[in-house]
Amino acid sequence: MKYYVAGLAATLTFGAVGVAQAQMVGIATSNPGSIFHNIGTAVANAANEAGLNATIQPATSPNQFIPLVASGGIEFGVANLQEVNYALEGQEWFSGNANPDLRVATLIMPLVEAIFVRADSDIMTHADLRGLPMVDGYTAQQTILPQLDAIYATEGMSRADMVAVNVPSVVAGADAFIAGEAAGFIFAHGAGKVREADAAVGGLRALTVEPTDENLAVAREHWPVAFFHFLEAGSMPGVTEDGWYFAYPQLVFTHANAPDDVVYEMVKAIAEGTETLRATFPPFGAFDPQEHMVGDIGVSEYHPGAIRYFREAGLWQD
């Protein structure tokens, strides 16, 4: 691995007996087809294997379910670190609505994403998208706009250089591409929707970035936790050659009032359930508990139940 640099919508009550009686827990995810729905499904399966009774609750985007988790309306969610940090402090699209009770359960493998185009097109770089119709808007998933800006900035571009095709979400953006309404779409590598698009149009090409210090600096002006991640040719749909892609940390998160025992058991299930995680969602093959679960989380805090597990597993250093 190379680096550059579902559920219940009401608060559940847990007894003092802990999780021994297969307590019900919810995991908030994005819509089916999205990377976070795939991740949430895998996490739920690993949790169920470990004795938790976990179900997923899909929503349009983390914009909606991050505050729900923060308020205790559901126990866990899967999202990206930058958006959880914004929600915690009430910044960007969460402006004026801070969620100080958000807590990190665990980091997982990074989210690696790309702008995908048709493999039979003559679009070889992001610069080739100038003047073409390109997905934009993302009214229900505002996290995507600064990510697009970050990717375009690596080639001295902005979203204004394309003709906007406004969509509410990444899934809708992929559908617009499949329908021929846009020249490309942004999505996470490994997501089910990418495989669907790949089959629908007869092959995809994922556009790479140049992993320079200058490009990383301009990307982080738009997405502060960004880094670049290397993928080998053929490792994912659309990866037609070895190359570098825009990436950032993903996590399973919870809220400050979630019972310590429940968070402990969830984190333990993820750490020890790698076979189930990978069988459910193959990109978990890149997940290494020793390497990924504990790391720099910026302004966020780990939940005490998670810290308890990390200490027991020798992953935590005060």
Rank of each mutant, 00 (worst) to 15 (best):
E312D: 13
L107K: 12
P211Q: 04
E232L: 06
N63M: 15
L12Q: 14
I56P: 00
N80W: 03
I178K: 07
F65Y: 13
Y3N: 08
T125N: 09
E92Q: 13
Y4C: 04
A10L: 03
S121F: 11
N257C: 05
A16T: 14
G77R: 05
A271W: 01
A197Y: 03
G137W: 02
T106L: 11
A199N: 12
S158L: 07
G15N: 13
N257W: 10
G90D: 14
T280W: 00
I270V: 14
I115P: 02
V209A: 06
V104T: 14
A199Y: 05
V117D: 07
E75I: 09
S235N: 07
A50H: 11
A256D: 15
A247K: 00
E312Y: 04
A98D: 08
I178D: 02
E181T: 03
A98W: 02
D242N: 15
R220N: 14
N53D: 15
S61E: 01
P211T: 07
L102V: 10
G72F: 10
G298C: 05
L111S: 10
E210F: 11
S34L: 04
A256S: 15
L277T: 04
P283M: 05
V218S: 11
E272L: 15
G137C: 01
S300A: 15
A269L: 04
D261G: 09
D161H: 08
P146W: 03
G190I: 02
F76K: 00
F116T: 01
A20G: 14
G305V: 06
R311K: 15
D161P: 03
N63E: 07
F253N: 01
G26C: 04
G51K: 03
T106R: 01
A183H: 09
M1V: 02
A258H: 09
E275N: 06
P282Y: 00
A191F: 05
Y86M: 09
A22S: 11
Q250P: 00
H126Q: 11
F65D: 01
V194A: 03
Q57R: 09
E92N: 11
E155L: 06
E312R: 09
D128T: 07
V117Y: 04
D101L: 05
T55K: 12
N166C: 02
A16H: 13
N48Y: 06
P249M: 13
A50D: 05
R308Y: 00
A306W: 06
A286G: 07
W223P: 06
F116E: 02
L8Y: 02
Y248M: 07
A176F: 03
L88I: 12
E92L: 08
I151V: 13
D122V: 06
A199E: 12
I151E: 12
E113D: 15
T60M: 14
G131L: 01
D288H: 04
L231D: 07
V43P: 00
